[in-house]
Design a protein around this nucleic acid. Structure first.
Lengths: 214, 214
DNA sequence: CCTCATAGACAGACCTGTATGTATTTGCAA
DNA sequence: TTGCAAATACATACAGGTCTGTCTATGAGG
């Protein structure tokens, strides 16, 4: 039999997994399994089996499971911020619309049957302050810090009198939408929270120095 | 030596744990460990050791770990809803203030150094749709359903034209506050989101049939 | 030949749940 | 109050499984 052992392996979206290099195959498989089942409940052996890779190959690319977890979270961070950038950097958006565009980015993930909530909230649930995985914890913290900075950079042009306050309110609506979508499976939360954000920002603009930026 | 073996066991708040019945000792210990370290990463042996109980005693009170987890989550549900009831049922609150009072309930938990986020969001992170623990999953779902119903009952007297929309917005601010507080450790999110909720509700009241209820 | 990946056994630690036997507490009766 | 039996809890060993990570040996391709 000349067929290679991995020929039948396929990832969730039906993409051929065997075409990818071993490292990408491992990462994609792990990403899917970690996100679906939680990190602690997915063992190395399962990742190896489903990615069609030998154990030694795995440990050559990822020295430890913690290493793979951190890489998985960095991978999620990258794709997530790319989605946010795509939504907010569309041409012709006013500063206010640019803030509201972060909610548009949620529309597609929420409609996907594979949506299971925010990977970083889930990560924090499994690797909180008392965990003993500095790499993983640092990666999670970096995401939240990055998201805060991103929101702040979108809100800064509005020249609100209390920008930090608006930042955490918008971030609450953003992260809250994920929790609600995860527990209700209803994407209606996107539109509701985008409108809520608009009401909040317009209210804040009234009492701010330069309302013409609206 | 006539001292009992469990005399030195003490729980996190410094309360004597040995005064409690074994079942309560197990539940309190498990509750603390599950919440601090996540559920999957805390084994039965550790709960048994830290609660100063024999293994057979444990399995007499809780037939399985899943049973203990579900009990833990029901325990958290009860205390959580009691806190919400205490805040919202204070005398002299208008219907609008009653809704905003759910944010007051967050103040104390957020200031506690032991705060680690929403136990049910964390639970959902470890026991999502693909998990194989019906009791645990049902308990988590019951919390979210109960919270939704609770918020709806608070908002219903406001007679908004789109009450359901307000409910999920307020719940987003509520759950979002937990995520933000967990990642930033800054209780300022409580006041910010209570004010956000006020702005949203007042805006919704303007376009509703009976604004005098404000 | 040489590099890379595969295949699979293995060690040591940890997991849940069971079994066995001993000690302590409790309830009740005298 | 004292005595005793039943219920409860303790301590510990163990089985069977899973976990991470290492090791050895084999095969395919440039």
């Amino acid at each position: 039999m000349e067929t290679r052992g991995m020929l039948e392996f396929v990832d969730v979206e039906g993409q051929p997994l065997n075409a990818l290099a071993p490292r990408e195959r491992i990462l994609k498989t792990a990403s899917d399994l970690f996100y679906r089942f939680s990190i602690h409940s997915v063992g190395i052996d399962r990742i190896i089996a489903e990615s069609g890779v030998a154990k030694m190959t795995f440990y050559k690319h990822f020295p430890s499971k913690a290493d793979l977890i951190a890489t998985y979270l960095r991978y999620k961070t990258d794709t997530w911020f790319q989605m946010l950038a795509t939504s907010t950097e569309r041409a012709g958006l006013s500063p206010l619309e640019r803030v509201l565009a972060i909610f548009d980015a949620l529309e597609e993930p929420f409609r996907a049957p594979s949506f299971r909530g925010c990977p970083f909230v889930k990560g924090l649930a499994e690797f909180g302050p008392e965990a003993n995985s500095p790499d993983v914890q640092a990666t999670i913290a970096a995401y939240f810090k990055g998201l805060h900075g991103f929101a702040a950079s979108l809100i800064e042009p509005l020249a609100l009198s209390k920008p930090e306050r608006a930042v955490i309110q918008i971030l609450s609506l953003f992260q809250g939408a994920m929790v609600i979508a995860q527990s209700t499976r209803d994407p209606a939360i996107v539109e509701a929270n985008r409108d809520a954000a608009r009401v909040l920002l317009e209210d804040a603009l009234i009492t701010s120095p330069e309302p013409e930026l609206r």
